[in-house]
Amino acid sequence: MTHDTLKEIFYCLTGALVVFSGLEFLWPDLVLAYININWVLILWLASGIVIVMTKPSN
């Protein structure tokens, strides 16, 4: 998996966290009924760590 793909995943998960949190704030339980945001957060964190660790050196 390329570094750019990982970045895309990270941005997507960042967007998902923001959108899901916003939806959950506006309409409680709308997201939590179907998606466990904790897992999204863990994936987001993991993808961020992997990006940092696999950052190509200049």
Binding site: V19, L30, A33, Y34
Partner: peptide
């Protein structure tokens, strides 16, 4: 795109 679809589906299931 995936995020937009998931969000729309969540709204559909809520409304």
């Amino acid at each position: 795109m995936i995020l937009a679809c998931v969000t729309l589906w969540l709204l559909y299931m809520g409304i």
